[in-house]
Amino acid sequence: MKFIGTVIVCLTGGLLLYGTMDLPDWGDPGSPASTHLSDYYIEHIMEQTQVPNLVTAVLADYRGYDTMFETAVVFCAGLACFLLLRDFRPKKDRYFRHVPTGVMLHFKNPDTRMIADNEFEHMDKDWVPSDMIIKTVCRILIPFIQIYALYVVAHGDFSPGGGFQGGVIFGSSLILMAISYNLKTLVKRVTEKFLSIFAALGVLIYVGLGVGAMVMGGHFLDYGMLAPLLPSDPGHIRALGMLGVEIGVGIAVMAVMVIIYVNIVSEGRHDEGL
């Protein structure tokens, strides 16, 4: 079986290499990919959208419909992950620490009255003794990571970056919090309800901007039609539309990152995990 697999992989690889035979040279300025549409984009993007970052303009405006569904793909992944993994049954097996003595206790079937008692502290099964250095460094770092994430989202139309990247950075700052403290700290601050609302809200902002343009009488995602609604000069309206879209993408990606992380590490129980 392994042998057949190897043969198939080699054949496919050979086929792919064979297919590169009459591809244009690497970076050839005369190749179809750099002449057919690129010229149009390079010449017209600045006047049509006033967005200096061509990649963002193509991604969020010319091909904005694709990007809307890319966001929906992210949302769909979060939804599927939640639907399949989330387990509402509480876990029986738990660890507690008796605070005054520091003794660790393992309960197969804990008495809930005791949990309410202040003397016992619920510990994580995969708990790592919390390190003061790690905690402090992360506590200082997390706000900066988040500010940077917001910067990446907000400057998507001027510099490399945008909603997807910013959302991932923001999500990873929250995951860092879960890793350096514990999962409960994260879940207490960023609740499940908050995350599911934000995941849907992000996509909704994108779809909403598209529908807004439609309501104003234009085509779907034609940000130019939103001009009467926003106090901005009409030439700049497409850039604003793109910014709105990027914010939507950023929110959705951030929420879905955390949803997937929390569900996977805690086996869907949202109480303890790495």
Binding site: Y65, F69, E70, V73, C76, L79, A80
Partner: peptide, 22 residues
């Protein structure tokens, strides 16, 4: 558009995985 078709193929595939696994 052939790439748009791919993106929507992803949507339908991902959601069908989620539904089938239930």
């Amino acid at each position: 558009d052939v790439f748009n078709l791919y993106v929507l193929l992803e949507i339908s595939a991902l959601s069908s995985y989620g539904m089938l696994a239930r």
